[in-house]
């Protein structure tokens, strides 16, 4: 464990807590893409198949349970909570995410570390996570200026993977045989997708204006 990875995990945890806070406090999920939340639930379930077979550390197990639990709780809330579900932007959240699922799965069948069920699903979850934010970015684009909690959620989510890239560089420099090409390349693509959002987020923060994304 290094400081970059810890910062990344904490930032990731903050992004989930910000989202849960927004939904719980305001009983509203306007501006949040259910499709992105469902993709994240699939990412965590398919990535943590080793939850009960591999014990790495208490921290690792607890964080896995938190990520799986919170992502499923958010999806449940947005789908079935009688108050929250009314504020879901159903007509704006129309990203055809089956494409993302299909492409990620096919890519995982071709590119993986070992051809075992667990490794193919692990690679699938890595590829899927890189593109899972797309429905949310499209929704932010369509709904124009975002309310700041939705913007903060995306900001922390992007920052977490940027910290992980620093972690991979650090591990590559300090551990001889550290190679995680699948994670590194996918993580770079993921962070790049946030780049334009970060730009507009910084501009709005600098001008102390509401976040305006070009339609």
């Amino acid at each position: 464990m290094n400081i970059f990875r810890l910062a990344g995990d904490m930032t990731h945890l903050i992004s989930v807590l910000v989202l849960l806070l927004k939904i719980y406090a305001t009983k509203s999920c306007s501006g949040i893409s259910l499709k992105t939340q469902e993709l994240y639930a699939i990412v965590f379930v398919t990535r943590y198949l080793d939850l009960f077979t591999d014990f790495i550390s208490l921290y690792n197990t607890v964080m896995k349970l938190v990520f799986i639990g919170s992502s499923l709780a958010i999806v449940w809330c947005m789908r079935y909570h009688r108050v929250v579900r009314r504020s879901y932007d159903r007509e704006l959240d129309t990203f055809r995410y089956w494409i993302l699922l299909g492409v990620s799965f096919i890519l995982a069948l071709v590119l993986h570390e070992k051809f075992t069920l667990q490794e193919v699903f692990w690679a699938f979850s890595i590829y899927l996570e890189a593109v899972a934010i797309l429905p949310q970015l499209v929704l932010l684009q369509r709904s124009g200026n975002v309310d700041n909690l939705a913007g903060q959620y995306v900001f922390f989510l992007g920052a977490y993977r940027a910290f992980y890239i620093l972690n991979w560089i650090y591990r590559y420099l300090t551990e001889q045989r550290f190679t995680r090409w699948i994670s590194c390349v996918s993580g770079l693509v993921q962070t790049a997708l946030y780049a334009d959002f970060f730009y507009y987020y910084f501009i709005s923060w600098k001008n102390n204006a509401k976040l305006q994304l070009p339609a």
């Binding site: 990875r5 080793d50 591999d54 690792n60 667990q118 692990w122």
Partner: peptide, 10 residues
Amino acid sequence: SSSINGHDEL
């Protein structure tokens, strides 16, 4: 300690 399948990251 990295796990059996080497994935010790979240």
